[in-house]
């Protein structure tokens, strides 16, 4: 089947018109990047597949909220993907972990997991993060892959908020050098 080609503006316009073909195009065009991002957070393929599907259905349901003045479509997709994947891990971990487990221990136990030890190995951002020095790795791991807010990270790591902000910014500048 001949796939249509859209500019980003055309694609967004078609998505906002709930054009099914545009959603299929969106999926085919972005699925590998989105799937990889999900796998960074959820290595289990079956769950990751479910999240992948949910992400694109959520795009359909939430497309009217997407504001082009706030960023590119992919940036919005990435944020949506990350939020959904993190939510999924929280649901799963809530079931797995006993209710009386201290939240700090729970976070640390996940934090110490090395992505290289996961069942499925995917090259991506998380690997880059784990190459960072420990103090940077911790804040990015908690912020990006586990979805904690900066003040929550300060509380969890018992650091001043200012220190968390500085480490997060320095860490992400370091990552940029690796990313581009």
């Amino acid at each position: 089947m001949q796939q249509p080609h859209y500019t980003e503006a055309e694609l967004v316009a078609a998505l906002k018109r709930y054009d099914n073909v545009a959603y299929q195009y969106l999926y085919l065009n972005y699925r590998s990047a989105i799937y990889n991002n999900i796998l960074q957070i959820i290595p289990a393929t079956e769950t990751a597949n479910d999240v992948l599907q949910d992400v694109f259905v959520q795009v359909w349901k939430n497309i009217e909220k997407y504001d082009t003045s706030k960023g590119r479509l992919f940036t919005w997709l990435l944020k949506l993907t990350r939020n959904m994947a993190i939510n999924q891990t929280r649901i799963k971990n809530f079931k797995v972990h006993s209710q009386n487990e201290d939240i700090t221990n729970y976070v640390t136990s996940i934090e110490n997991k090395n992505p290289d030890e996961t069942a499925v190995h995917h090259i991506g951002l998380r690997q880059q993060v784990h190459k960072l020095r420990a103090e940077y790795k911790d804040v990015v791991e908690l912020a990006y892959f586990q979805g904690f807010k900066q003040d929550e990270i300060a509380q969890l790591l018992q650091l001043p908020l200012g220190t968390v902000k500085t480490r997060l910014r320095n860490a992400i500048i370091e990552l940029r050098k690796e990313l581009v």
Partner: peptide
């Protein structure tokens, strides 16, 4: 970011 992630994707 988009280009980098598109280049390093994983196909389902």
């Amino acid at each position: 970011v988009e280009n980098k992630m598109q280049q390093n994707g994983t196909l389902p």
